Deep mutational scan, measured.
Amino acid sequence: MQRVNMIMAESPGLITICLLGYLLSAECTVFLDHENANKILNRPKRYNSGKLEEFVQGNLERECMEEKCSFEEAREVFENTERTTEFWKQYVDGDQCESNPCLNGGSCKDDINSYECWCPFGFEGKNCELDVTCNIKNGRCEQFCKNSADNKVVCSCTEGYRLAENQKSCEPAVPFPCGRVSVSQTSKLTRAETVFPDVDYVNSTEAETILDNITQSTQSFNDFTRVVGGEDAKPGQFPWQVVLNGKVDAFCGGSIVNEKWIVTAAHCVETGVKITVVAGEHNIEETEHTEQKRNVIRIIPHHNYNAAINKYNHDIALLELDEPLVLNSYVTPICIADKEYTNIFLKFGSGYVSGWGRVFHKGRSALVLQYLRVPLVDRATCLRSTKFTIYNNMFCAGFHEGGRDSCQGDSGGPHVTEVEGTSFLTGIISWGEECAMKGKYGIYTKVSRYVNWIKEKTKLT
Rank of each mutant, 00 (worst) to 15 (best):
P333T: 03
G427P: 00
N151T: 10
A233V: 06
L19R: 02
D93Q: 15
F388P: 07
A250Y: 07
E86F: 05
E66I: 05
N135M: 15
F238Q: 04
A307Q: 13
N59K: 10
K311I: 07
W118S: 13
I334L: 06
S220F: 07
K51M: 05
D322L: 01
K274D: 02
T271M: 10
I112S: 15
V92I: 09
Q216C: 06
A308Y: 12
P239V: 00
D110A: 15
R43A: 15
G280E: 00
L24I: 08
T417Q: 04
C335F: 00
Y444R: 00
F399Y: 13
V273A: 03
Q408S: 15
H415Q: 01
A397M: 02
P324C: 03
D315G: 03
R449T: 09
K347E: 09
D410A: 07
L103F: 07
R404D: 15
W261M: 02
E53M: 08
N306Q: 08
K188W: 12
Y305K: 02
G236C: 03
T16N: 04
Q2S: 09
R62H: 10
E456K: 06
P333Y: 00
E323D: 10
L369N: 08
L244D: 01
D111Y: 11
C97Y: 01
D110P: 15
P44K: 04
I256R: 02
A9E: 05
A250V: 08
G58W: 05
G160W: 02
C145W: 02
V92W: 07
L383C: 10
L367Y: 11
I17D: 01
N59V: 04
S423T: 11
N80K: 09
C178Q: 02
G351Q: 03
L23E: 01
M394C: 05
T458K: 02
L41Y: 15
E27Y: 05
V183K: 08
A380N: 06
V368Y: 08
E76Y: 06
N42Y: 08
N452L: 05
E72H: 09
H303G: 08
R404C: 15
P172V: 06
T458R: 01
V263Q: 00
K188I: 12
S423I: 06
Q237Y: 10
S255H: 01
Y441G: 02
V377E: 02
Y391G: 15
E193P: 11
I256W: 00
E231G: 10
R226P: 08
C155Y: 00
I428T: 03
S406C: 09
F360N: 14
N127M: 14
P235V: 06
G349C: 03
I299T: 13
K455C: 04
K387F: 05
R226K: 10
D322A: 05
E434N: 09
S385Y: 15
E193G: 12
C69G: 04
D338E: 08
N452T: 13
V451P: 01
A308W: 05
D405C: 07
K293H: 11
N138S: 07
R384H: 13
Q96K: 14
K137S: 14
A266D: 00
S220Q: 08
E159T: 08
K45N: 11
T215V: 08
S255W: 00
L211F: 11
E124V: 14
T332C: 05
G439E: 08
I7S: 06
F348A: 11
G94K: 09
C102A: 00
P375H: 14
F395P: 01
D110M: 15
M65T: 08
L425A: 01
C28E: 03
Q216Y: 10
C97V: 02
A366V: 05
Y444A: 03
C119D: 02
I334N: 00
I344F: 15
A397N: 01
